[in-house]
Every structure is written in C-alpha cells, then in structure tokens.
Write a protein that binds this DNA or RNA. Structure first.
Lengths: 193, 193
DNA sequence: TGTACATCAGTGAACGCGCGTTCACTGATGTAC
DNA sequence: TGTACATCAGTGAACGCGCGTTCACTGATGTAC
C-alpha cells in the first residue's frame, strides 16, 4: 500500500531528473527490488498511467488556481490559464510528456486517467462558457472553441519542449504566450472598429 | 553513396510500418549488415536528422502545394495549408514525430535540418504577410502571428496523434481542422458587425 | 493462550531481448609509375 | 600493359548495456479454532 505511494513519488522524481523512465530505475529510487512494483501495478504501462493521472490532477489544480481570482473576467482568465498551462509544461516537461505522449488513451483502459485529463480540459470549457453567458465571447460550441485554445497552448508547449523555438527563460516564454493568446482572442482579421 | 539513399528510404519505410526506429532495423531493411550505416552517418542521431530533414522538405512541398492556387486569397490559403499540415501529420505520423520529437535542435548541429524546418515555417509567414499587404489580415509581427497559427495546428496534430481526441476518419479530422482555423481567424470576441 | 494455517508484500536469480557502437577484416575499385 | 599500392564500402563477431517480465522463494502478519 505505502509502497505504491513511494513508487509514484519515485517516478515523479525520476521524471524530474531525466528524460526516460524505467521500472527498474523507479524501484531503485524507491529502495526496493526491481520486481516489487509488480505487487502494485500490472505492468509498466499501468504505472505510467497512474503517473500521468496524478500529473493531470496537479495540472488541473494549476489551471484552476490561475482561473480562480478571475471568475467574472473570462478573457483574462483565458490568458491566465493559458500562461499557467505553458508554465506547467515547461516546469514539468518530462511529466508533461508522459501525460500526453504515451499512447495511454487508445483502448479506454485507465478510465481514471481519462477523467483527470477531461477535468483539466473542462476548466477551459467553463471559462469559454462563462464568457458566452457574459456576452464577451462569441457564441458557438464551447467545446470546440476550447479545443482551439487547448491546441494552441499545447502546440506552443510542445514546440518549446522540443527546442523548436529559439526562446528561453521562463519570463520570455510567458510574455510570448500571453501575446499569442491575446492575439488569438482578437483573431486575425483587421479590426472593424 | 547509393546506400545512403537506400538507408533513408528504408528508414522512411520503417517509420511507415511501426512506431520505433532502430539502426539495426534500417540496415536489415536495406539488406545490409547492421554496421554498414556507419559508413554514411556518424551515428544514429545523424541518420535521424537526415530523415527529419527529408521529412521537412516533403512537408514544405505539401504546404506549398496547398498554398499555390490561392496566392491572392490569404485567408483561404491559411485554411488550406492548415488542413494540409494536419493531413501530413496524420498520414506520416511516425515520420512527423521524428521531425519534431527527437531533440535534434539543441546544439545547432544539423543546420540543413534547421533550414528545411525554417523553410516550411516561412510558408506560413509569407501567407500572413500577403494578407497584411492585401489588407485582410491585421498588422503586427508576421512571425508572431504565424507562430500562433503554427502552434495551433501543431497542437491539434499532436493531440490527434497521441489519441487525446475522440475523432477519427480523415474527413472528420479535416472538417474539424477547417472549423478550428476558421474560428481562429475570426477570434473569440463577439463580432462587432 | 497457543497452535495451525492462509495471505501477501517483497526478494533475487534468471530469461530473452534488441539495441548502439567498436574493431579488425575482406575484397573490390581506382591510381601511379 | 602490367605491377604495386592506396582507398574505401561493407562484413561479422564481439562488447556491454539496461530493459520488462517470470518464477519459485522467504518471511512477516493476520486469522480461526
């Protein structure tokens, strides 16, 4: 029981340290034989799913915090959550990769993981909906609009993690993110005002 | 000389077949001993860089073709290239992952790869600039606006590749992409017209 | 209170795997005189 | 034209690696009577 917790912490530690993750390394960090994890997880993938799930829970908390103080200013909330999103991805890059990159979503195994990632996404959706109710955000499928926003910050995060962009320093990255979201809210058309 | 070409083709084939890529497998496919590749590439990473570079060249051609017939309709060109972008990612998913995911951009090694990926990006930029000249796209740093568009389609592509979205079928995906870009062009604000 | 048994978390040896890379080599091709 | 040599692409054995997983096991803890 308690080892399960220890293993997950060790996994998080391993992710913080390096790029790859192996069962044996996690067991080593947990100070336990390399077969012990099989008492608590069916296989490596199941452990990764648990790690990803915990990541999404924390991730959701970050987004929620960013949104919290801006409940009735949806446009600012959108900015703040977007920045928080990218910040989380940068600061927990390897964990973030596990959350998104491990093909854990194919067969509908790991429903708890689906829930956790869905919950994080719903935070975005709820902001859009609040904006629509308030009349500051255009009407339409909130899910669809949220997906557009999600794709953009996710794409930016991935480009940054993969070193595709020549930007460094968290401050610069946050400024760039903010600018991108601002521009995205306004759209590309020449403003008619 | 000719083996180099054969190896790159074998690598492309390997990418089309499976998820992973190994030097030994490529050599096997090329019908050659597993050490032969070292005659033509310093190491595995160098081969991957060449594979990624070729991917970006083809990718750029796809985007260019999508843009070609819409030279003086930048907004449509933006849509068309966006759809072409996502289609390429879906249809060459493993290759696409190598192009973006392999940390090939850290140290400025592989300048040819940087050129190829830069050229693909410039296609987006040029569309934005054309729109600005024409007066249909708002003014501002074209690079920055293009980055916003790029991040969005890249993010969408990655979410699709990682199975994060419950959408399947190329038609549905393309429709969704189109809708997203359309919405993105207009922005999130309530239209003042 | 004491005995017999079941449960179950963790162990450590072993299996089989494919990988990237090295090294001394072979054998064909090209070049110089 | 023929000989001696250099170049260089490709070979195949070998190294060392870490991995995920299995298996029979140990030893502690809990439970039933």
């Amino acid at each position: 029981m308690i080892l399960r917790r220890t293993l997950l912490d060790a996994a998080r530690q391993a992710l913080a340290d390096g790029n790859t993750i192996s069962l044996r390394d996690i067991a080593r960090r947990a100070g336990v034989s390399h077969t012990a994890p099989y008492r608590h997880f069916a296989d490596k993938e199941a452990l990764l799913a648990a790690v990803a799930e915990e990541g999404f829970v924390k991730f959701g908390q970050c987004l929620q915090e960013a949104k919290a103080s801006l409940e009735n200013r949806p446009l600012q909330a959108l900015q703040a959550t977007g920045v928080a999103y990218v910040r989380y991805a940068i600061q927990h890059s390897t964990h973030y990769r596990v959350m998104f990159g491990q093909n854990l979503y194919r067969c509908g195994e790991y429903p708890a993981l689906l829930d956790a990632s869905g919950a994080a996404f719903e935070i975005l959706v709820s902001i859009i909906e609040a904006g629509q109710v308030q009349g500051t955000i255009k009407s339409g499928e909130a899910q669809q609009l949220a997906l557009g926003a999600w794709a953009q910050v996710h794409g930016l995060a991935m480009l940054l993690l993969d070193g595709q962009l020549a930007v460094s320093g968290l401050e610069n990255i946050e400024a760039m993110t903010q600018q991108m979201i601002q521009s995205s809210i306004q759209g590309l058309l020449v403003s008619s005002g």
